[in-house]
Amino acid sequence: MNETYTLEVLSEMTGVSTQTIVEYQAQGLVRSGFDDETVRSLRRLEALRESCGMDLQGLKLLAHLLDEVEQLREALRARR
């Protein structure tokens, strides 16, 4: 149902090198099934890196926080 991409295609789509994607994956910053959510995550990481000058540790912290906020919002919404 959800279209998935190969590492190379994903790299081309986001402009993030394959090594970096693998590194992000090892750090738990992106999920292993490469789909449109991964595209979005990578774009978000790149924006943070470029605009806020964040290093890997900062990215990890912020990405996890943003994911958690999103999950909590969804959970809150589901309770209505």
Partner: peptide
Amino acid sequence: RYGFPQDFSEAP
């Protein structure tokens, strides 16, 4: 944009 607070999303 990018699904996070807008203050973050302004690239230089």
